[in-house]
């Protein structure tokens, strides 16, 4: 893939990720509990990780967080999300590198670590370590969401991932 194609593919994935996170913000059931998110946009990140590699996944995730917060959120949300994205990316790249787990395992760890990163950032920002008690429900919701996101990503990677190399 040459640079122009890479840039275009990345832009496409970032727009998909942004649309997914916007759609998610519109569904009230998903935001009823604080911090509990399905993380639909993680589909684009996992897809990028498997088709464009780690740098692609980092670009999709970080730029998505930056643009989404700028358009639909606020500064605090950007800090929380960036912390979540950084932790999730680190662990997803490591878990994938072990070669032991499928897209589902990678995405579950990503979902959990995204929640954990947000909570840790919130604890620091509010100088209140007690917020960590939110962690357990977020781990459980992150796992369930991660399985769903992982299965969707696995299907997408199987169906259209191969074409990414040919464009």
């Amino acid at each position: 893939m040459n640079n122009t194609k890479k840039l275009t593919t990345l832009s496409l994935l970032i727009s998909v990720a942004m649309v997914l996170s916007y759609i998610e913000s519109l569904i009230p059931a998903f935001v009823a509990v604080p911090g509990v998110k399905v993380g639909l946009s993680n589909i684009a990140t996992v897809f990028a990780l498997y088709t464009l590699g780690a740098p692609g996944a980092v670009a999709v995730s970080v730029i998505r967080v930056f643009l989404s917060s700028l358009l639909f959120g606020n500064f605090a949300m950007m800090i929380y999300s960036l912390a979540g994205a950084a932790l999730a990316l680190t662990f997803m790249i490591l878990i994938k590198a072990t070669g032991l787990f499928s897209e589902v395992g990678v995405s579950v760890i990503g979902g959990i670590m995204h929640n954990a990163g947000q909570i840790i950032a919130a604890a620091f920002m509010m100088e209140n370590s007690g917020i960590v008690s939110y962690l357990v429900p977020l781990v459980i919701s992150g796992t369930i969401a991660g399985v769903a996101v992982g299965l969707i990503s696995a299907l997408l990677i199987k169906r259209i991932g191969g074409h990414m190399k040919n464009i």
Binding site: F101, S102, G105, V108, I109, I140, T143, V147
Partner: peptide
């Protein structure tokens, strides 16, 4: 890999 995934998920849930 699915078995590895299930073990990973189970471990995380048990810890939590």
């Amino acid at each position: 890999k699915m078995i590895a995934d299930i073990i990973l998920i189970a471990a995380v849930l048990i810890i939590a």
